[in-house]
Simulated assay, not measured.
Amino acid sequence: MTELDATPDIVGIRTSLTQVKDTTGTRVFRVVNGVILTIVCAVTLYPFVNIVAKAFSAESYIAAGQVNLWPRGFNLTTFKAVMGDSMFWTNYRNTVVYTVVGTAIAMVLTTTFAYALSRKHLRGRNAFIGMAVFTMFFSGGLIPNYILVAQWLSMRNTIWAIVLPGAISVFNLLVMKSFFDGFPAELEEAAALDGMSTYGIFFRVVLPLSKAIIATMILFYAVTQWNSWFGAFLYLDKKNLFPVMMYLRNLIAAASGGTEVTGNMDDAVQIGANIQSVTMLLTVLPIICVYPFIQKYFVSGVMLGSVKG
């Protein structure tokens, strides 16, 4: 059969595929799929919208359960109490510093360790992987960790007590290792033939082609560090070193005492009513602002790193 004779058959196949795509069943599926996804999005967004509405609502409407999707009795008392405190901004700055430094350290350690574990010729490779996986299921316990950080390493009331103990997440490490396992060996061999060292290959070839997984890991580490408060609770005594999560935790505890937050009883009642909504909104807002910039890498990064076990 000549190429000309085969052309009508190809055209016929394309026409058949086009007709299949436009069938009634396909259109119904698209409509049903769109409706289901819309409902899922609405159910997912409702709690957050409700929190935003409560954050700006008056205490009487919140207590009566009349706040749903729109603020009622618009009120900024709690926002003024929180954002008018200079300690809030000091702790907020601390959280930004802890998140940036902690994420940077975690990414350096995780990427280098994961790349090393992905190399088949690494001596003791299986032993290193086994040690890493072992820590996912077993730990020294709270008291030994506290003694190690606070006494032996003398990191109490320092930034290092916050950013170093959780510097490597084994889950993130294994995801990155899986990604590097599937990296084309031909590219590294070609770079080696051009005279690149191991470090040159890693920094100039591997990392530039790993933007998706790196962006995903940055998001994971940044969110974890941003939401962390227990480490500060254990290792920090000075209020000017607290992250914002510790400040908000203490504010919620103080709000339960009423006049400890403010001398005005009416304001204390208002703060106690929507303090949780305000704190949730203030803490989640920065992550929401950052997420759109790396969202395009998020799904592809997770999938790339999870193809192999």
Rank of each mutant, 00 (worst) to 15 (best):
69 L>T: 09
178 S>W: 02
107 M>D: 09
160 W>M: 06
18 T>H: 04
27 R>W: 15
183 F>M: 14
293 F>H: 13
209 L>P: 00
127 A>Q: 10
216 T>C: 12
121 H>G: 12
176 M>T: 03
215 A>N: 13
72 R>N: 12
75 N>P: 02
226 W>D: 04
103 T>H: 09
246 M>S: 01
34 G>H: 08
185 A>D: 10
305 G>Y: 05
157 N>D: 15
131 M>S: 09
305 G>Q: 10
147 I>D: 04
50 N>V: 10
197 S>W: 04
69 L>V: 14
138 F>M: 12
239 K>C: 00
81 A>D: 01
25 G>L: 14
22 D>S: 05
227 N>D: 09
291 Y>G: 05
302 V>H: 11
174 L>I: 13
241 L>E: 10
67 V>D: 07
163 V>Q: 11
256 S>C: 01
305 G>P: 03
306 S>M: 11
308 K>S: 07
190 A>N: 14
303 M>N: 15
73 G>W: 04
13 I>Q: 07
47 P>E: 08
270 Q>K: 07
235 Y>F: 03
103 T>D: 09
3 E>I: 11
207 L>W: 06
170 V>N: 04
269 V>C: 02
172 N>F: 01
245 M>R: 06
6 A>V: 04
136 M>Y: 08
142 L>C: 08
123 R>P: 03
197 S>N: 13
292 P>V: 01
211 K>P: 00
253 A>Y: 10
158 T>W: 01
166 G>R: 07
